[in-house]
Nucleic acid binder design. Structure first.
Lengths: 244, 244
DNA sequence: AAGTGGTCTAGACCACTTA
DNA sequence: AAGTGGTCTAGACCACTTA
């Protein structure tokens, strides 16, 4: 039996106190995912409040995805959301760790490019500056998943070149050097595997690959990275969560 | 003066009819961004409904970011969000209109499938129910861009079948019938064009296409659509905005 | 002081699901 | 047929903003 009750004297609205009580029950597993919670009538009776108050509390939990209502059937506790890390700016390594795969990298090529290179414009590189290119094959549990070609302003890229480029999560390194990532825009398309792609990834030539071009900005909205990553489509799917 | 009124005989809830009226006023600029809309009392008086009904309608618009309430002051129309069209759940037609292209559709196939079809599980279809399949080629400025195969629970799909399937934005139709879209999850991958794809889109066989599989949920988190859309990758790029 | 939206009650009839 | 949540009404008192 539940002991916690509502307190009319608090400045917190009753429906919000109820919301917290319900939230606790879900968190603590008193209300088990997949099960029907008590009916509105029962909650009204038990907590001695009006239907409006019960419904407001429940609606808050429906909106945040903890409960699901079904007319005629009842109100159910949702299974905990599996992901919700979606739409977050992460690097390959972080993403694979989330999926409980072991990320690694095989270095293909490093270069320093002059400021007249096509990507200089995206990176807003000044004419005296130059660009660091790092091309790697990315693996998960030892299996090649993607080819990642990243371009960095020299001031940023220098931090990376001091590290072991085969074992490194670039974004974590940069954050350790005080580079604060803010956001990124990506363009996603489908491309055919070139001869080199097919060699590096072990796929057939012309096989469809998922290509992602990303421009990443720091907290001052200065570009710090342009990257083109081509994924083996049968090994990697891109997830997006959209709201109306 | 406004002429449009509520119709008690419709199967659409009053608060939803009110929501549509208010939505129109915002869309058409009758209620100007930054201005305070009529008070709850005035709306109650004018539309002859209860406060609950007015508040439910307004809350829908607050939730979708069109209105902003302030206790003691009133309810204000929000300034239109500049961008943030990214990561928003829109249909093909809405998306093309935003890009100032003229969207259209060519119907390929319509069908009713039994509840033992593989997508029934995604749509949480009960065994007595069935599934409406609508397959269309989507065009922008008359040029084929994508093949869209959508699956709907019969109760939802029926609304669509009454419409001209070649000229229609499905999501808008559904919203007119009181179906509130909430969110969607998408999986994006690259696939090779099949023989049929190549015929419908006018591309070579095996050419890489960008494939998007979307499961759309309504406000009660019930699935209302599963859709698989294959885009010509040279004509369409998917944009994503990520935050750290 | 007057007017706004915020919270809350008590009640009614309905559509939908389940037994 | 009984029980669920969905919709709707009429009313009350409150906290907050503005004049």
């Amino acid at each position: 039996m539940e002991t916690r009750k509502l307190d009319d004297s608090l400045p917190i609205p009753l429906y919000h106190q109820l919301y917290e009580i319900f939230f606790d029950k879900i968190e603590k597993g008193v209300w088990v995912p997949g099960c029907i919670i008590p009916t509105e009538s029962e909650l009204i009776e038990y907590y001695q409040v009006s239907r409006t108050t019960v419904r407001e509390a429940i609606n808050l939990l429906v909106q945040s995805g903890y409960l699901e209502k079904k007319q005629g059937r009842g109100t159910m506790v949702c299974k905990p959301r599996l992901v919700e890390n979606l739409n977050k700016l992460t690097g390959f390594a972080e993403e694979m760790e989330r999926k409980e795969l072991v990320p690694s990298a095989k270095l293909v090529h490093v270069d320093e490019l002059p400021a007249n290179h096509p990507v200089a414009e995206k990176l807003k590189i000044s004419l005296e500056d130059s660009i660091i290119l790092i091309k790697r094959v990315r693996l998960a549990d030892g299996e090649p998943i993607a080819i990642e070609t990243s371009y960095w302003p020299k001031s940023i890229g220098e931090h990376l070149l001091k590290e072991d480029l085969e074992s490194v999560a670039f974004y974590k390194i940069l954050e350790q050097h005080g580079v604060q990532l803010l956001e990124a825009d990506e363009e996603i398309s489908a491309v055919a595997a070139t001869k080199e792609d097919s060699f590096l990834l072990g796929v057939k030539e012309q096989e469809p690959l998922l290509q992602m071009e990303r421009l990443t900005l720091d907290n001052n909205r200065n570009p710090i990275e342009f990257a083109r990553t081509k994924y083996r489509s049968n090994r990697y799917t891109y997830h997006v969560h959209l709201k109306r």
